[in-house]
């Protein structure tokens, strides 16, 4: 029974990792680019959501707003920030005909954005964790002796909806086919009229949306936000993505859940200090035993989304 309870808890925990891991997978799968701003976008939603719920809109435009409104604004901020990052770091069209070292430019500049934004938030709001005035995180359902916290259950459902929605978008819609075409063969996609300059921002918009939703779910679930909240989630999501298999959305889902499970089990048996060792150890072992990840096809940027 205790084990079952732990598994339920770990699925709930893993669902936050899943959303962020899917965000990483999207940019890596389509643009072949490890987007380091993802943890920051996640944090931005949490922190702006908190600031608006606690202080109100900047420059005295409003008093404190209800937390759901604040989180929606926080998500919009993440989407906008992601579009700014695309405009100023990715410069996809410029690197397209360049030599391969230019692949480092988006990577490095996204790292730059991570540090700048994180530090700006610290300057603005300080280094402390802040209590997020969300719903009572301890509202609990008791199902035959097993406890499920309602906000976590909602998070899980939202996560499932996100992943299914994204899969349908990629498989069934015109824009989804365009994205997959660019992922596999940008040149052939271009020739057929897929405009890279118009489609790439869609990837960044989706990235911002995913991170924003994940950040909002995190704030509601844990009732606490900080300028550093993205770091831990970000590293674990990357681990989850790699364990699941790069470039595969369902791989990211599975990997995120595996990391959640590993974390719960590790905390249970060995204590919280060893979590990163176990998670990244598992990643290294996976890479040795299954170099392509559990779900992977060794096809980064080859359109296996």
């Amino acid at each position: 029974m205790l084990l079952l309870q732990q598994i339920i808890n770990s699925v709930m925990l893993g669902s936050v990792y899943v959303t962020v891991a899917v965000a990483f997978t999207l940019t890596i799968g389509i643009l072949n680019f490890l987007n380091f701003t993802i943890p920051t976008l996640f944090m931005l939603t949490g922190m702006t959501g908190w600031a608006i719920a606690y202080w109100g809109l900047p420059m005295g435009l409003s008093g404190p707003l209800p937390w759901p409104v604040a989180l929606v604004i926080g998500i919009l901020v993440a989407v906008l920030a992601s579009l700014v990052v695309e405009r100023f770091t990715f410069r996809y069209l410029k690197t397209r005909y360049g030599d391969s070292t230019e692949h480092a430019i988006p990577l490095v500049s996204s790292l730059g954005f991570l540090l700048v934004l994180e530090n700006l938030v610290q300057i603005g709001y300080g280094n402390d964790s802040q209590r997020f005035p969300g719903p009572d995180a301890d509202l609990t359902l008791n199902i035959g002796g097993l406890f499920v916290r309602i906000p976590q259950l909602v998070s899980l459902l939202v996560t499932v909806a996100i992943v299914v929605g994204l899969t349908l978008l990629l498989k069934r819609s015109r824009i989804g086919r365009g994205l997959r075409a660019i992922a596999e063969n940008p040149d052939a996609a271009n020739i057929l009229g897929v405009d890279t300059a118009r489609v790439v921002p869609v990837v960044f918009m989706l990235t911002g949306l995913l991170c924003g939703l994940a950040g909002a779910l995190f704030a509601v679930n844990y009732g606490e936000v900080s300028p550093f909240m993205g770091e831990d989630i970000g590293t674990k999501a990357i681990a989850g993505m790699v364990i699941g298999g790069l470039g595969s959305i369902w791989g990211a889902v599975l990997g995120g859940l595996v990391v959640g499970l590993l974390e719960m089990m590790t905390v249970h048996f060995f204590g919280a200090d060893t979590v990163q060792v176990v998670v990244w150890g598992a990643l290294l072992l996976t890479l040795i035993a299954y170099p392509q990840g559990l779900f992977g096809h060794n096809s980064i940027g080859k359109g296996k989304l």
């Binding site: 086919r177 075409a181 992922a183 052939a188």
Partner: peptide, 25 residues
């Protein structure tokens, strides 16, 4: 429209999805 050298069909897609790519616009 150009049928490029080496065909350049999308191997990660189905036959039908490839045809739909022709109708992208």
């Amino acid at each position: 429209v150009l049928v490029p050298e080496g065909r350049q069909i999308f191997v990660s897609m189905t036959v039908e999805e490839n045809l739909l790519m022709g109708a992208y616009l």
